[in-house]
Design a protein around this nucleic acid. Structure first.
Lengths: 202, 202
DNA sequence: GTCTATATTACGATAGAC
DNA sequence: GTCTATCGTAATATAGAC
């Protein structure tokens, strides 16, 4: 969806997006009205339609941008020429940190799939699948190399991603553990789940 | 919520509940209207209010009944006097099977928490926490006995439950794997995640 | 026990003034 | 670029006939 060119419009466009993400993550797409989003940023409901053709497009754009950024962020840190074990470690640490940092978008991407039109769903689902395939390839390579014990890579992939993503439902910034400690705890579980022993120190 | 005494009412009460569960699981609580639920069972919207005082109570009752049944079902199969390892196995098999069998209720219990009033949320959250504690106690006992390697039992509990419950999002009855095979795959991952080696046969 | 009819409120989206 | 005003529709819930 095209952005308008005016001066204040740029600011408002961003504000619309941020307010929509926050409100939809908290209350759900169907429960949030365009009026609520408008009120959150201090404009009237009609003004929102300068920045989105309709409510559905707002949801699709939020999810699409999130998944594009997620895939790009992994590409930027993905280790090349590393062993499956090293790639798994990098993926777990990346996933936990990224999903905590973008909790609202993550919650929307996971919970609001059913509020997409069929056409929009296909687009988003393909992106989600591309992300899933990153981990699945790591598991397959590790199984092929004999370092992982993973008889069903697709099931293991979904199990691990569900486990890791779950952190977004309970993590609090003021909790007893910081992000790195949590990531290491999840990493130890993920390593065990694919049949790797604890690293040397233990 | 009191049930009416009439003859046809008994049947309709059950139909309301079943239709509500199915529709809310599929489209989400906020997106489903009382008219839709009524249409699904062939009555007018007004007739629903013979069986529930309002839409919110319908949601609370669905979640409350589900969690009560879940806790009762575990009590019925929970092994007594067993080792942490045996209890973990029993829990994983129970959880996977029960959550596949009651997918609609499970989806509602996990996704619609934010649509509960604060008071209803507290009730449901306490039940959810009681279920979580079952697994957490198993992990703590295993860690205390030295058979599990679980430095953070609460995090491990949430990770495992998220992993196991994820099965409800992709399982298809006509898929290549039956429920028992899937449960064994998840069991192997869960065992590894808590630091148990694969059982003898491998 | 269920219906029709309705009160009341809110929704998404658009039109036109400024 | 934003506002006010509004159109058309649909929501939850209730009242009263049958």
């Amino acid at each position: 969806m095209a952005r308008k060119i005016g001066s204040n419009g740029e600011r408002t466009a961003g504000a619309v997006r941020r307010a929509a993400i926050q409100l939809i993550a908290r209350y759900g797409f169907a429960a949030v009205s365009m009026r609520q989003i408008a009120a959150e940023i201090g404009v009237q409901a009609g003004a929102l339609y300068l920045y989105t053709p309709d409510k559905q497009s707002l949801l699709r754009d939020i999810m699409e941008d999130h998944l594009e950024r997620l895939l790009a962020a992994w590409d930027a840190v993905a280790p090349s020429g590393a062993s499956p074990e090293e790639r798994l470690e990098a993926f777990v640490r990346f996933h936990v940190r990224y999903h905590i940092d973008r909790r609202d978008e993550v919650a929307i991407a996971y919970m609001e799939l059913r509020n997409l039109t069929p056409e929009n769903f296909r687009t988003i689902e393909a992106q989600r699948r591309a992300y899933e395939d990153i981990l699945c390839d790591i598991l397959r390579d590790g199984a092929a190399a004999g370092t992982f014990d993973v008889p069903e890579p697709r099931i293991a992939t979904r199990g691990l991603i569900a486990m890791l993503t779950g952190v977004t439902t309970w993590f609090r910034r003021d909790g007893p553990l910081d992000i790195d400690e949590i990531a290491e705890t999840y990493l130890a579980m993920a390593r065990g789940a694919v049949g790797l022993r604890a690293p040397a120190l233990a």
